[in-house]
Design a protein around this nucleic acid. Sequence first.
RNA 1: CGGGGUGUAGCUCAGCUUGGUAGAGCGCUUCGUUCGGGACGAAGAGGUCGCAGGUUCAAAUCCUGUCACCCCGACCA
Length: 524
Amino acid sequence: MNAKNQKQQSGKPKTAIQPTREENYAEWYQQVVKSAEMAETSAVRGCMVIRPWGYAVWENIQRGLDDMFKATGHQNAYFPLFIPLSYLEKEAEHVEGFAKECAVVTHHRLESDGEGGLKPAGELDEPLVVRPTSETIIGATFAKWIESWRDLPLLINQWANVVRWEMRTRLFLRTAEFLWQEGHTAHATKEEAVEETLRMLEVYREFATNWLAIPVVTGEKTKGERFPGAENTYCIEGMMQDRKALQAGTSHFLGQNFSKAQEITFADQDTNIQHAWTTSWGVSTRLIGGLIMTHGDDDCMIMPPRVAPSHIVILPVLHKEETRDAVLAYCEQLAEDLRAQTYDGRPVRVEIDKRDLRGGEKSWQWIKRGIPLRAEVGPRDMENDAVFVGRRDRGHKEKETVQRQAFIDGIGAQLGEMQDAMLAKATAHRDENMIMIDTKEAFYAYFTPEREGTDKQPAPIHGGFAMTHFSGDVELEEQIKKDLAVTVRCIPTEGQGLPGQDEPGTCPFTGKPSAGRVVWAKSY
RNA sequence: CGGGGUGUAGCUCAGCUUGGUAGAGCGCUUCGUUCGGGACGAAGAGGUCGCAGGUUCAAAUCCUGUCACCCCGACCA
């Protein structure tokens, strides 16, 4: 069904994109990615082109996180894209976990196939794996760098692309190639390594909450969901608007598994040779998918100001030739004054859209991109020394005239308010859809879609985060996954104020004792 | 990798059942009228119908294979 048909179909309000979230959430997501001009599919299967408006978001994410990594003592470095196959083979669980999704380079040149085409030639002695993650190649380097306890801790981060040959891909959420950062650290003691793992988990929580306005639950993964080769995996889990969970970042305590596999050893203060304790942690362009699914609405994207590529667009109303130059000059001055203001410790990011397009069309394009503020400026505003302002997290007709100077002076505060409002809204949605469940029947009912009307279609959006006691049986978790496609998202870490989290109780599925509640949900 | 669906103009799609040599809307270009809100009129450009075979006098249409994308599973950040 095309947009036109849908528009004519009924009296419902016209939305900037179709379908609405309620009608078809998965399709809505794809329309946002496309219509907000963030990314598109490419000629290469499973790989995306990140467009300037989407890439600018990634640059802001990088900047914010990188500052936090530096502030916690980490340094950036860069390691090879290619990993010798033998490296990957060293850690048994690790290989098993990644083997199925590795791209492998077997040749190093091309030659003519005699029919006008090219064929690979020069077979490599040892195949190279395109990194799916860099524990092994960085571990091998660490083994060379570390000799003494004085070399520890070693705190390294890499910004890079990785490749995981996934069966099914979705822009930003799961692509064959994606951009991410991976932190890798080595420590003298287990305690220090665990502390590092939790420190970076907290950095991720802080970033997701205060930069992306995505409220997250932090916690530990169950054995079945753990990173291949890790002792413990911790994660941040956000709730999307369809109430499914999105794993938005992970932090792994790797114990001595990788240091033993790769001989990362050091001489301690008693001259004994010891294996180091390592960690790794990462977030990826998937965060942008989380941003879309947390904040977007039926009119497309809404950017939290802190990571928005631009904060405000000035839309000059230029159709009268005699006022054109004056309006433009007024807009230029306004832009200059706004840029002199700061938000989040940096100059306000301002655009002027002078393109010769119809006002409505232009305005809708910026609405779809999710820019926080739109200022329409025409002769009338100029006469009143005012601007006509719309805020993206409010209705598109809810615009108001503001005195120019008051608007300029208040822009930083207004962006801050919008950032806070977005977090508050997302948090309320999360809290509304978080429930404590104490019986197996109630649990199964909660995750079984309700049928509505006569068409027998499952309710498209249902469920949420269910907190139950849990005995920890791997088989039970498997069974529930099979029955309902629901998994334990995490065993929440303490002190998040989650209801009943730390109270002991009884597992509703097995009747066995349980130390505390875990979070169950369907997930991406 | 299993089940389902779709590939036709830049985009969204019709045409396929019943084979006869390419259509619409949007977008784009030009001109005019408009313009505080996703305009209207006129003219114009644009496609070897995903790809490869086969059947046929003739294939977008029928058959086989193949590739890509989407949805549901399995896998996963």
